[in-house]
Design a binder for these strands. Structure first.
Lengths: 332, 332
DNA sequence: GACTGCGATTTGAACGTTCAAACCCGCGGG
DNA sequence: CCCGCGGGTTTGAACGTTCAAATCGCAGTC
């Protein structure tokens, strides 16, 4: 494997000049640059990243802890990872994966990776209510950026990017309203996670703004499963309160809604409009296709990387989800 | 951040002795080791990975290309990544993610990562028929191991770990047989991918072995979607050929089968037994739960890492999938 | 013609670690 | 008493790069 020294010898310049050819080409005279580049090309030289990192103490690697919550499905994680990788690569960086125990027990792992100079910083996701990681990392002065706000805390510890769930729900409600529905229900989760509350509130205010009813139309499902989505829908149907639209907190719940509606002879779309969340792979694979609020993964990843690799000002970006319209919300 | 030198000064030994305390503790006298360890502890020293890698030219990082095939859903990718990470970490290594164009166009990316000493080797997955990557990497002498055999090639270019789809199907067939079914259909894919053929053949031979019919019971769906799974099942039902069990090539197809059966008033499980593939998150979220052939991700990851970091003998591991039994195959 | 200024290039050191070889010291054997 | 041996420790160099400072060459200025 060729080194700077060998390239330098071949091009008959000093080592530093070759280094400059790569990192600060404007410093070279045009003809020298040309000559050096030819030698680089010829010897198929690639800079050794370890030597570089040793000298500059920047590894151009970003740590990401791959989540392992067996009870929650990560249907869009591959989208997120791909987007994150791509965004990192656009700045010459890469993603380093690792595992860590949840919560504060995982912090030594983060610390260790940073202390050993294996990563420059971290991207956090799967943010929980009162997530301890953010405060800890801030305390230790370890660079990070969070996908997702830390809920239940007055000030945000560190920079973040998130998707505006409230506005997302509002978009869904207005879309259903626009296709003629006037009684729009909400299928949510039990435990008041910040995310769930956010989305719920958006539904409520949007309904109020449009002057359509909400009382008795919000159902809390016991878990994030198709089964529970179906059961929640059944409860809604059995309650006797009429409704012609459903905004569900997740695609999985929405799938349950579709199933229950179909089972009761109601055509999703034509009968009751259904909108889910996250535009998971399920959404387009089911029939009728599920209208869903897509997280703009590419934007999210782009912002995360920009913030993390930028001048580390406290940055906060709230992005809007995009409504992907499919059959489940076809005009009734 | 403390360095070897500082620890050495603090413990009043040479730098090399501290290095030995970490990498070859048996070389130190017990009391020196004790003393050095105390200093390490006290100064909270962590070896700088870049300096180490520079010297030893081994980075302890394994490259993995995060796939981006929009038309195929990666429902178990998070499981795989988690297992792979965990297995790598057990040997002190980590996973570096990157993106690359599919096929041979992506090879420069692999080459570059290796030439810059950013990774020691690669784990390949999403192996395609006649996948060019394996041969290329072998040619370039870049260490790798493949999750998935390269189909349509007489000899395997390099070490691999795979799951025995044929035996998997056979397990499924025997399970359905064991619960009383005697006419077991197969829901497959169109394009004869190696994987599809493998699983199909297992179904056929198992049926023959048990003396149950196969003619007219294999259906090829046009895509890997719920919709197509339902349509395939419908075709089967409409063909007039009786059947009481279905082995589907994927959970998604199986879900389609469940839907169509339910729609026609047939109870999955009690009526027709259904088995899917891969035990994706969908399987346990649907109702009745979907019996599915789980890929033993932890074993797979373990083997991949062992082979890659081992003495690089040509190694081939064919693992068995595990049948996860749920309601969809309850005795009829 | 010496002096200044500036762009292009080189020199020497440093980043933090490990490898290979040298060194030191106490001990048993001739 | 000297030699050889071997475990424990130190020394010097090297890995491949970049930084900071020094040097060189040349044009413009007084």
């Amino acid at each position: 494997m060729a080194t700077l020294k060998q390239v330098a010898a071949h091009a008959e310049v000093s080592v530093q000049t070759v280094s400059n050819a790569l990192n600060a080409p404007h410093r070279l005279r045009a003809d020298t640059l040309e000559r050096v580049n030819r030698s680089i090309e010829l010897l198929n030289y690639r800079p050794n990243r370890n030597a570089r990192s040793l000298r500059t103490s920047a590894v151009e690697l970003i740590g990401y802890c791959v989540p392992n919550w067996p009870n929650q499905t990560h249907l869009v994680m591959d989208q997120f990872l791909h987007a994150l990788c791509a965004a990192a690569e656009r700045t010459g960086r890469h993603i380093l994966l690792f595992t860590a125990p949840p919560g504060v027990d995982g912090m030594p792992t983060y610390d260790d990776l940073h202390a050993r100079r294996m990563v420059d910083g971290f991207v956090l996701s799967q943010t929980e209510t009162h997530d301890p990681r953010h405060g800890w990392l801030k305390e230790e002065d370890i660079p990070f950026v969070s996908f997702g706000r830390v809920w239940g805390q007055s000030t945000q510890p560190g920079p973040w990017v998130d998707v505006d769930g409230a506005t997302g729900s509002a978009i869904a409600v207005r879309h259903l309203y626009g296709t003629g529905r006037r009684r729009i229900a909400f299928l949510g989760w039990p435990k008041s996670s910040g995310l769930a509350e956010d989305r719920l509130s958006g539904w409520r205010t949007a309904c109020k703004d449009l002057g359509v009813p909400t009382t008795g139309l919000a159902v809390r499902c016991r878990a994030d499963s198709i089964e529970e989505g179906a059961r929640g829908t059944a409860r809604l149907l059995d309650s006797g309160r009429a409704f012609d639209g459903i905004v569900a907190l997740s695609d999985v719940l929405a799938l349950g809604a579709l199933r229950e509606l179909t089972a009761r002879g109601i055509t999703p779309g034509a009968g009751v409009g259904v909108v889910g969340y996250d535009d998971s792979p399920l959404a387009e694979v089911v029939s009728p296709g599920l209208t869903s609020l897509r997280q703009p993964m590419d934007r999210i990843a782009e912002e995360l990387i920009t913030i993390l690799t930028g001048d580390q000002q406290p940055a906060e970006r709230l992005l809007l989800p995009e409504l992907v319209i499919r059959g489940s919300s076809a005009p009734g």
